[in-house]
Amino acid sequence: MKAVVSTPTGGFAGGNLVQALGVYGAFVKTAFLNMLAYRLRYFTGVITYLLFVSVNYFIWGAVFSTREAGAVINGFSFPEMVTYVSVAWMARSLYFSNIDNEINELVRTGQISVFLLRPVHFHWMMVCQAAGETLFRIVFFTLPIGIVIVSIFPVSPPVSVSAFSLFLLATAFAFLIFAEISFAIGLLAFSVKSIDGIIRAKYFLVQILSGLLLPLSFFPELFERVLMFLPFRMIAYVPLQLYLGKIPQGEVPWILFQQIVWSAALIVLCELMWRNVVKKLTLQGG
């Protein structure tokens, strides 16, 4: 006796996919609305980001002032450096997500079981919600802060239209890679008593290792070579190099391929971790 009664799969091939897109699209929308409740918080964010960029601008101004005009340090001229720093912070608001903290909170409050009681895939749901938050930030944060930064500091435009498209594409993958890393960190909340420290460590490590604070070419060579084998440079350094046209045309497909591989690998890792968590959760209770 099997209930095959009401599993509406849509009357046509691909109905499931349309359905799924509808559901996960709704998560994006809900996250957007949810953020709207906190739009005021973002006005303070604008000031914080402006401060970060200003501090960096003056530091690099001081560094370059000791050199002759037109000097290039570790492959960056002063205008490039200013552009790097400014665009890096603007881009951060596009790929940033808070999944680790959110999972931590859901686990702490036990609310996580509510999601097991729904016919949705928790992993995709979290990523879609993060995407909804990013959409929100584009409108209420990235655009206003972009206008302010560009009108104050001498930020160069992208070297070409194709460079800009590649930058946007790479930033989309950066979002995915960042989200999956956050998801994996968040899942640690199931096995460790408190992951607040881990989350904070991740926060700063990603800032450094991704090249947000300092282009990776400034790091010792050995360190830089190790970073080549880690996913973090895909988050900030690689998209910005594309923006500045610093990656030779021939190497672009290779670097995008690496981004895809990293995204896929992290998705698989997170999915395995999630299944393991569900297994433990359903064996030991919530």
């Binding site: 509808g22 609305l33 409740a37």
Partner: peptide, 14 residues
């Protein structure tokens, strides 16, 4: 943080 009706709509989608 969202209006109840929005939660309902989302649940309807789910």
């Amino acid at each position: 943080d969202i209006a109840v009706i929005e939660s309902f709509k989302l649940l309807a989608k789910i």
